[in-house]
Simulated scan of single mutants.
Amino acid sequence: MIDNIKACVFDAYGTLFDVHSPVARSAESLGEKADPLSRLWREKQLQYTWLRSLMGLHADFWQITGDALDYAMNVTGADRAMRDRLLEAYLTPDAYGDALPALRALKEKGKTTAILSNGSPRMLESATRTAGLCDSLDAVLSIEEVGVYKPHPKVYRLACDRLGCEPAEICFVSMNPWDASGAAAFGLRVARINRFDQPGDVLPGEIAAVIYTLEELPDLVA
Score class of each variant (00 low, 15 high):
residue 56 G to Y: 11
residue 60 D to I: 07
residue 114 A to Y: 10
residue 127 A to F: 11
residue 70 D to R: 12
residue 90 Y to L: 06
residue 119 G to D: 07
residue 66 G to Y: 06
residue 123 M to P: 03
residue 61 F to D: 00
residue 77 G to P: 14
residue 75 V to L: 15
residue 120 S to E: 14
residue 103 L to F: 08
residue 86 L to Q: 00
residue 109 K to G: 15
residue 75 V to W: 00
residue 54 L to E: 04
residue 116 L to I: 05
residue 77 G to M: 13
residue 76 T to F: 14
residue 129 R to G: 10
residue 122 R to Q: 15
residue 84 D to Q: 12
residue 111 K to S: 02
residue 64 I to V: 14
residue 101 P to W: 04
residue 129 R to N: 11
residue 63 Q to G: 00
residue 69 L to C: 09
residue 114 A to W: 05
residue 105 A to M: 04
residue 80 R to I: 09
residue 58 H to M: 09
residue 78 A to R: 02
residue 101 P to V: 00
residue 84 D to C: 02
residue 70 D to Q: 10
residue 58 H to Q: 01
residue 99 A to M: 02
residue 86 L to N: 01
residue 54 L to D: 08
residue 97 G to W: 06
residue 74 N to E: 14
residue 121 P to K: 15
residue 63 Q to D: 11
residue 65 T to Q: 03
residue 83 R to Y: 08
residue 101 P to F: 08
residue 120 S to P: 15
residue 72 A to E: 15
residue 55 M to H: 11
residue 73 M to T: 08
residue 124 L to D: 00
residue 126 S to T: 07
residue 74 N to M: 10
residue 90 Y to C: 15
residue 117 S to K: 02
residue 81 A to Q: 14
residue 58 H to P: 10
residue 121 P to C: 14
residue 120 S to A: 15
residue 84 D to N: 07
residue 121 P to S: 13
residue 67 D to I: 03
residue 120 S to I: 08
residue 129 R to F: 08
residue 121 P to A: 09
residue 124 L to T: 09
residue 105 A to Y: 00
residue 116 L to Q: 09
residue 83 R to G: 01
residue 93 P to K: 10
residue 83 R to L: 05
residue 106 L to V: 02
residue 125 E to Y: 07
residue 128 T to L: 04
residue 82 M to N: 02
residue 81 A to E: 14
residue 95 A to G: 06
residue 54 L to V: 14
residue 87 L to I: 14
residue 104 R to V: 12
residue 74 N to W: 07
residue 68 A to G: 05
residue 106 L to T: 01
residue 95 A to T: 04
residue 120 S to F: 06
residue 108 E to C: 01
residue 61 F to V: 06
residue 109 K to A: 11
residue 89 A to C: 02
residue 99 A to T: 03
residue 101 P to S: 09
residue 121 P to Q: 12
residue 67 D to V: 08
residue 77 G to C: 13
residue 73 M to E: 14
residue 112 T to S: 03
residue 99 A to R: 02
residue 72 A to T: 06
residue 117 S to W: 04
residue 74 N to D: 14
residue 120 S to M: 13
residue 122 R to V: 12
residue 100 L to T: 02
residue 98 D to I: 04
residue 94 D to G: 00
residue 115 I to W: 09
residue 128 T to D: 13
residue 112 T to M: 12
residue 106 L to C: 03
residue 130 T to N: 11
residue 75 V to A: 13
residue 126 S to C: 09
residue 111 K to Q: 03
residue 125 E to K: 13
residue 82 M to H: 01
residue 61 F to Q: 05
residue 73 M to Y: 09
residue 110 G to N: 03
residue 57 L to N: 06
residue 96 Y to M: 05
residue 117 S to C: 04
residue 100 L to Q: 07
residue 105 A to E: 10
residue 118 N to H: 00
residue 106 L to G: 00
residue 113 T to M: 11
residue 60 D to F: 01
residue 97 G to Y: 04
residue 72 A to R: 12
residue 111 K to F: 14
residue 129 R to M: 13
residue 117 S to D: 06
residue 129 R to W: 02
residue 128 T to F: 00
residue 114 A to F: 03
residue 114 A to N: 07
residue 129 R to T: 12
residue 98 D to P: 11
residue 102 A to I: 05
residue 98 D to K: 05
residue 107 K to I: 01
residue 130 T to F: 05
